[in-house]
Nucleic acid binder design. Structure first.
Lengths: 211, 211, 211, 211
DNA sequence: TATGAATGAGTGTTCATTCAT
DNA sequence: TATGAATGAACACTCATTCAT
């Protein structure tokens, strides 16, 4: 078996290239021709693997959300924050935020698609359940319809002052550094401080109150 | 006899409709036909007023930034924070944030265009100079190349934990309310609390240190 | 007003060319590019006038059926067969069969589309009501659901031994003449005799019985 | 071990499926993918057995005409109408019309292909020699160039008022019954009467004259 | 100012066909 | 015999833009 032209490899190359180009130009702005060329496959081959342009997007999204959920579930099953919460939380965040960082292109696409009226749902909100309030007790990924006001408040804080800034940071860091003459490590540090002095402050205050 | 029809009015209607549709579908996703139809003008008339699709976008942006800047300059000229800073700051924020809220469609377009690689510059960053750190001494809108680290840090905080959450709130509020069963006033209040307990906390702490 | 590039003219040219090419290649086999080229219009112009390829077909059909029906109605209103039936019938047939002959391309398309499973309905059958049994008293174009067996029998005779042979003759005459070394007038005469000795015989016998 | 699979069976399945789908959608409208799927064979296997899409059509046609001719020749060899003509004729017609009925799909394809300008020849006319005037003396399938006018007239009658109605009946019977609320046996009987009172009338009259 | 008509260059998608195994 | 992967050439349809009036 020569590793020359492999089936799954082609499909993956299409998926990877599409991810990159969707992130660069937006879903609407991305061109199948361009994806084919950059992935070094025949344009028709894309339609051999995917029903349509949108089907590529769907697969990108579903893979991302599947992995995200799996990651979280795996963590919860490993014990969650039951014991050694401090340590575990840092470990999880490291893992999860790292995963998000590695998937900034998908996040960018998700963000853009959430802004346009094209998609019915707002895929961005699906992140709330995963990254937002970490499970107290094995909560479902689906938004509880009967959440208390306090829980709603927490969702809002988590999303708008935690998730959104982080994703924005991931999406814009290169452009920021180019524009404001900073190196990526510098920005990384500055952003870390920013979060510590704003969003994390909120968590600390909450903990204080709860004790 | 007057020149037949409503000359300037047509142009404005085109601009308004384009703004709305660009915000809905994204610049790439928006169609000139669609804009013409919704603005109730002939498609060719759009090309009488604007050189190209991109020229509409440009005018939208430049108008927005001109107004933003004018607003700020006007405020500075009125005395800025020199006296009665507390009061003045609230007044300014009220005004300025109100202006942003009224222009959420343009903000949405700016945000989207800042994410795609299409535009050379990142129009979103131009907001930093206006809304971020209010002028110490009549600073230019252009990023100072020799800003100190402390200033850079402040920019980062202001942008990622102040501007970005606010704009995101403006862009997503309807979808959020639809998805999480909240009313807009509820979300407005929750978001206000969120900002108070995170971003504003940072300002309070800074003030404390500076005294 | 120069007669150069006229709106309605272009549309008509598209329609005429499409009719010709649909008849030659079949609806599926016809190519929009080909139609555009032969009609000497830009391909996009076709979509300026017609929503889709199918819309062209629809207009072709509806025009034909509208005209057919109008012709019949007009004839009925002019007195039908009330007086001087012999004479009137010949006049009508001359007119109507002439109209069909002039529209052999549409008939060909109708026939082909009636054979493929593509179209839900069978446009060919719509001819039955018009050309088949000529109105006794202002009958509706729609097939009566409660027709007697005798009427059904008549429909069958009219369609399969009257309409079908005539349409087939119209559709195949050139090919027949080329293949069997006949001139068109020769075939015309032979076909006339054929109909006289078969289909018309039936009518004569019926008349005889009814008296 | 046998050569793996059902070799000839696959080919036949392809042929049968192609016949069905060509008849349903027309040759141009039929898709190789569709045929492959419905025949439950790999698309490439079709190209193992057939040089091209058209080659399938060719095989379908040539098989049909070979069988038709064989049937006729066989009949002639068995004595033709020499003795007991009445009886023999009925037997032959029963057999032959039955064969046509069993091959209505091929007939449909032949009809459609005869209408489009795609095929050079008009396969439909090849039926004339077989089903039309039964051989006086072992005539060739090719049209005699020096046929008398009387013979030409007979061909015309036979084709346009005999073959065409019968084939049309075969092609349209389901649709007719669906549209005009008749059962197939009802239509069968009505069509039989129609032919008796038109086409067969012609033969009777001819016989009368010849005696 | 305003418009109906027209167009070149795409744009996602499909098709018959071939290749490598 | 059989197949999954791959491809060039269409294919219907769209888009921003221009022209003539």
């Amino acid at each position: 078996m020569r590793p020359e032209k492999n089936s799954e490899e082609s499909k993956q190359r299409i998926l990877d290239t599409a991810k990159k180009i969707f992130a660069e130009k937006g879903y609407t702005g991305a061109r199948i021709d361009h994806i084919a060329k950059e992935a070094k496959v025949n344009k028709a081959l894309i339609y051999y693997y995917f029903k349509s342009k949108e089907a590529i997007l769907d697969e990108l999204f579903s893979t991302f959300f599947k992995e995200s959920t799996a990651m979280l579930l795996n963590f919860v099953n490993r014990g969650g924050f039951a014991e050694n919460p401090e340590e575990n939380k840092r470990k999880f965040e490291e893992e999860y935020l790292g995963y998000l960082a590695a998937n900034r292109d998908v996040l960018k696409i998700i963000f853009m698609e959430s802004l346009t009226g094209n998609s019915q749902d707002t895929p961005l909100f699906r992140l709330v359940d995963i990254g937002g309030n970490i499970p107290k007790e094995q909560q479902q990924g689906v938004p509880q319809p009967d959440e208390t006001d306090a829980e709603k408040q927490e969702l809002v804080v988590e999303f708008f002052t935690g998730i959104i800034p982080y994703i924005s940071y991931l999406m814009l860091k290169e452009k920021w550094c180019g524009h404001f003459s900073m190196t990526e490590p510098e920005l990384y540090q500055a952003f870390g401080i920013a979060m510590k002095e704003t969003h994390e402050q909120y968590h600390k205050n909450r903990e204080g109150k709860n004790h």
